[in-house]
Design a protein around this nucleic acid. Sequence first.
DNA 1: CTGACGCGCAACTATTTGGTTGCTCATAGT
DNA 2: ACTATGAGCAACCAAATAGTTGCGCGTCAG
Lengths: 107, 107
Amino acid sequence: MTDQVDAVFAALGDPTRRRVLDEIGRRGGATATEVAADLPITRQAVAKHIAILSGAGLVDAQRRGRETRYRVTPAPFGEAIDWMTAVGADWDERLARLQRLTARRAR
Amino acid sequence: MTDQVDAVFAALGDPTRRRVLDEIGRRGGATATEVAADLPITRQAVAKHIAILSGAGLVDAQRRGRETRYRVTPAPFGEAIDWMTAVGADWDERLARLQRLTARRAR
DNA sequence: CTGACGCGCAACTATTTGGTTGCTCATAGT
DNA sequence: ACTATGAGCAACCAAATAGTTGCGCGTCAG
């Protein structure tokens, strides 16, 4: 339960990892080597990051032939947002509105 | 700019740190020693975590006498949510709705 | 004034982790 | 069949960091 949220925040905690996810999202899917081309790190480093993102359920792999293409699956974001609104809802009217919105979708 | 988002996600990346923030939020404000009482770590460790949370603007300190009481200031959550919705909006209808909501409040 | 309580700072340790290089394996193209 | 491209190990390195102990300082109560 919180396990999922843990994984999501841990995954998003690293800036490089967020850039990787961003890149995959912006392209509407990409391979590890494609992403690595736009970042100052090696393909293996990207692969590691993607593995972690995948572990958090934020990314979805589908191998076709010799290439593995990844897509963003932002569903787990919902729980992360839920947690944030739960912690801060009393303090901020906008967060309270978000809470109402996300609470309805829960389950 | 992204600096703020960086700090927020980095701060939330550690599970213990989220528990600290959670504890402060649930109590509606707390001191470092109070939080440490409920966690399996020392007061100093908690203090360090709070320092990082404070650096991210997620927590607000006010010293009164010999005790320093902290409150949650969840405003920075907004940018974090913005980032998430931006990455995943195409893929998830609920996120798209969140994006519309948060985009309006930007600035 | 004195003792206790709470905070902040500094030094040090151990683990995590982001990144690299080097290799092997499978698939695609010629 | 041969070569090149892309992915998946595995071992290794360096830096970051979560946590500890120890100390000194200000503040409240008797």
